[in-house]
């Protein structure tokens, strides 16, 4: 294999990119798989990646593993990312990917399905990268993706039970009900997110917690989720879950006979933002 063109496929930890990796396993033998590790992914994601790696029989290169979120949080001394200042995407996703790809010609395979052809993923602006969309080209839709995953015996990442997307446990794009899901499934991560919201990194000082409260934007209360702190959000647990159930029901009546995972994706609460991070969710 002496071809000078690299073939790369990014794995997000979600179902589509995993299915694409499996789909291309035999089609593009020289494929290089990569995953941008923020160091703050859900445990389910890490577990799923190992699973995928074993099935693929090839390593998935972990980019950025030396400089994850905690690193940047300390370097930026408590300046938190937000939809307005999304440094997380820049320093933990785009920069490491572009550094890893380098300047050699490369073909990037993007996991956009045939039934969502108008979605935009991370499509690099670097001139040496050519993007391909095998699912779109071959007409692989949601059902096709599920079949690929089933055949491989890999199943879905476990977070799909309560969350619609992979990404950091504190992703500011996640929905209120997903925050509750985090509090239920991973209380320790929820506590960590609560601390970060107050510009405190747990177990990170010299022997305790690192408090950056008097550094970045001192005196300004940051909130991960619009309009309320995580503590306030958790106090509204029942209300949020009720509203979420209503939204689920509404989404279900709107379309019949669809899998739960799709219902979840469509069920926005009134106070959720429909935005999402195009890079992380890819």
């Amino acid at each position: 294999m002496t071809s000078s063109v690299r073939h790369i496929c990014g794995i997000s930890g979600g179902k589509d990119s995993s299915a694409l990796a499996l789909y291309l396993r035999d089609r593009v033998p020289e494929m290089e798989y990569f995953f941008c590790d923020t160091g703050a992914e859900l445990p389910e994601t890490y577990e799923f990646l190992t699973r995928l790696e074993v099935i693929l029989g090839k390593p998935i290169v972990r980019l950025n593993s030396e400089r994850g979120f905690d690193h940047w949080f300390e370097v930026f001394r408590g300046a938190l990312p937000s939809p307005q200042m999304r440094w997380c995407t820049k320093v933990m996703k785009i920069k490491p990917i572009e550094a890893w790809i380098g300047d050699k010609p490369a073909i990037s395979y993007v996991a956009i399905r045939a039934d969502e052809a108008n979605r935009k993923g991370y499509i690099s602006t670097k001139p040496n990268i050519e993007s391909r969309f095998p699912f779109v080209e071959d007409g692989v839709d949601h059902e096709g993706v599920m079949k690929i995953l089933d055949d491989a015996g890999i199943g879905l990442p476990a977070y799909y039970d309560w969350r619609t997307r992979s990404g950091c446990y504190f992703c500011f794009y996640q929905r209120k009900a997903e925050w509750i899901g985090l509090a239920d499934r991973h209380p320790e991560l929820f506590e960590r997110a609560v601390a970060i919201e107050q510009k405190v990194l747990l177990d990170a000082g010299v022997d305790g917690n690192a408090d950056f409260g008097d550094r970045a934007m001192a005196g300004r209360q940051y909130t991960w989720s619009g309009g309320e702190t995580l503590v306030q959000l958790r106090d509204r647990r029942t209300e949020i879950l009720d509203r979420h159930a209503d939204a689920l029901a509404r989404a279900k009546t709107a379309r019949r006979n669809i899998p739960l995972i799709e219902v979840l994706a469509d069920a926005f609460d009134d106070d959720d933002s429909a935005e999402q991070c195009t890079v992380c969710a890819l």
Binding site: V54, G57, G153, I154
Partner: peptide
Amino acid sequence: VYEDDHDWMASIATVLAGKAPSE
């Protein structure tokens, strides 16, 4: 597609457990 018996078996074991052996 696997290099050796270990990788072949690891994938079979992963399918059986729904989890990679290392996990």
